[in-house]
């Protein structure tokens, strides 16, 4: 089975920066597995994640090298770095969803937050919209909590609920890959647990890549782990291997808490 995404010899330079922020990264992302990227702050893990749906392109002037291949349903690989037209970007971002560090509920009702992406795809049928909204909210275990106030402003929810709403919003679009950018760093332990359990459920249907500061989280939920340091990918392997028998000294120092 081919990898869902393959990052090959990828380098990334921010606008105006002299040195690249990512050097020659090669990382496979396997289908229906959770791949976590760990590393100290500033190592480029979020930069890498944000390259995978090209959200960087909202700010012009950044430069890429290498290729990021995305497997489509017919088994063809497309290099997403070749995308130039706006409608192709939209298509890419609907296939590769993203959840951010802080909850970002849109300034609208809970229902509309989830229906928003669906409406963008052209779905207008009220009953279908309602069904999709209900299903997405059930998938993130939020339905029971919000079913009586679907039409209230989403910003009235608690932080953990908001983050689950944001995940529901992404999975309502039925993406193929979901990117999580430190999704629990702003949440309390209970909400974190809820989201980790959810990610565990989601991997049956989705390919997941998660950036995290929290090494315990990486060891709990991921199948593969990549360790990055100063823009380089130091080591990539099965999560157990990385945490029990790392090959590189730097990896061992980081996961045992000697630095970082």
């Amino acid at each position: 089975m081919k990898n869902k995404m393959e990052i090959n010899h990828f380098s990334f330079t921010y606008k105006g920066a002299k040195a690249p922020s990512l050097n020659n990264i090669t990382l496979p992302v396997q289908t229906h597995k959770v791949t976590s990227i760990i590393g100290p702050s500033g190592c480029g893990k979020s930069t890498l994640l944000r390259s995978m749906n090209r959200i960087h392109d909202l700010y012009p002037g950044n430069t890429y090298e290498g290729e990021i291949l995305l497997l489509d349903k017919d088994g063809n690989q497309q290099n997403i770095l070749d995308i130039k037209k706006e409608n192709e970007f939209i298509h890419l971002r609907q296939k590769v969803g993203m959840v951010f560090q802080k909850p970002t509920p849109f300034p609208m009702s809970i229902f509309d937050n989830i229906a928003y992406g669906l409406k963008l795809t052209g779905l207008k049928n009220k009953h279908k919209l309602y069904d999709y909204v209900e299903k997405s909210l059930r998938d993130v275990a939020l339905w029971e909590e919000v079913k009586n106030r679907l039409y209230d402003d989403a910003r009235g929810l608690s932080g953990g609920q908001q983050q689950r709403l944001c995940i529901a919003r992404v999975i309502a679009l039925k993406p193929e890959v979901i990117l999580f950018d430190e999704p629990t760093s702003a949440l309390d332990p209970l909400s974190t647990l809820a989201i980790e359990e959810m990610i565990f459920e989601l991997k049956q249907n989705y390919t997941i890549t998660i950036v995290t500061h929290n090494m315990q989280q990486a060891s709990r939920i991921s199948d593969y782990t990549a360790f990055m340091y100063l823009g380089d990918l130091i080591e990539f392997d099965h999560t157990e291997t990385i945490f029990i028998r790392p090959k590189e000294k730097q990896t061992e120092d980081y996961i045992t808490g000697k630095f970082g």
Partner: peptide, 22 residues
């Protein structure tokens, strides 16, 4: 916040839709 706009773009919204809806 930039991240709010980014999350709308990340759902496939166009610039016009982000301005209008977010």
């Amino acid at each position: 916040p930039d991240v709010l706009k980014e999350s709308a773009y990340a759902m496939g919204a166009t610039k016009f839709e982000v301005i209008k809806d977010i």
